[in-house]
């Protein structure tokens, strides 16, 4: 059986009323990639992620995960939303939030059992948060919140992970811990797709990059695609530190 792309986006257009946020986007990410989606503010990065996960209805085009529609692939998709998208004053514990990652497998009505709790604790251990299991979530720092969200996605035991700005507002230690886990997922043959903000770290963290600005500017292996010309095309004049990143002479970022 030929290997299907982990993510295949075809001719995707998403619009709010008549204002397009994504214009005819094509993107193919191979399995086992550690992929960054980058682009300026308002480029539609989060919109792309939400369309992939069926949270937004596209005006045109389709999304396939492992060659099949998302509805049939829920079980193999893990999701880390933006940290700020939920109310951290919600009355619940860290362990309970991580357990939510198990809900998809449980389906309606079934309650999480002992195995689910074991898996949740194990994933909390992976992100270095097992001591916080009984903690109320409002007592967490930003970095700890992000780790909990990551543990929740790990508890989904998925094959393809989508993460919306996993490094947003976290401390350096957490950033290192998260990237370690992402690399570990890749080593296990899983695919990670992350919306990313910090262009400086793209070559260090990722092996695949998609440059988005409403349209797909370029996508492919970082060594081929992360070039001065492509960055200029994606960011226009809004990138003052471009020259530091990609020397014009080679056009390729030194790795």
């Amino acid at each position: 059986m030929a290997t299907q792309p982990a993510l295949q986006v075809e001719d995707l257009t998403v619009a709010y009323l008549d204002k397009p946020v994504l214009w005819d986007v094509d993107l193919t990410i191979p399995p086992g990639a550690l992929a960054a989606i980058v682009g300026p503010n308002g480029a539609g990065k989060t919109t792309l992620l939400k369309s992939v996960l069926g949270l937004l209805k596209p005006a045109a085009g389709q999304v396939l995960i492992n060659g099949r529609p998302y509805d049939e692939q829920r079980r193999v998709v893990g999701y880390v939303p933006q940290r700020g998208s939920v109310d951290w004053d919600f009355p619940t514990t860290v362990l309970d939030v991580v357990l939510m990652g198990r809900y998809g497998r449980l389906g309606w009505f079934r309650r999480p059992g002992r195995t689910d709790r074991q898996i949740a604790m194990e994933m909390l251990g992976k992100v270095g948060m097992e001591k916080f299991a009984r903690r109320q979530i409002s007592q967490l720092s930003g970095g700890q919140q992000q780790r909990v969200f990551l543990a929740r996605a790990l508890a989904q035991e998925a094959e393809v992970y989508f993460m919306d700005e996993p490094f947003q507002g976290v401390d350096a230690t957490t950033e290192r811990a998260i990237i370690e886990i992402m690399k570990q997922l890749r080593a296990e043959g899983k695919t990670v797709v992350a919306v990313h903000h910090d262009l400086q770290t793209v070559p260090e963290y990722f092996d695949f990059v998609a440059l988005l600005n409403v349209r797909m500017v370029a996508a492919g292996p970082v060594s081929e695609v992360f070039t001065h010309a492509n960055l200029r095309a994606a960011y226009g004049g809004r990138m003052p530190f471009l020259s530091e990143l990609a020397p014009e002479s080679t056009g390729v970022i030194p790795q």
Binding site: K50, G54, R74, V86, D87, F90, M100, Y103, W108
Partner: peptide
């Protein structure tokens, strides 16, 4: 479980098929 998830994180609830 369903109400809790949908209240805390409607996005994940949708993604998981609730």
């Amino acid at each position: 479980k369903e109400l809790k998830l949908a209240t805390f994180d409607a996005g994940l609830a949708t993604a998981l098929g609730f």
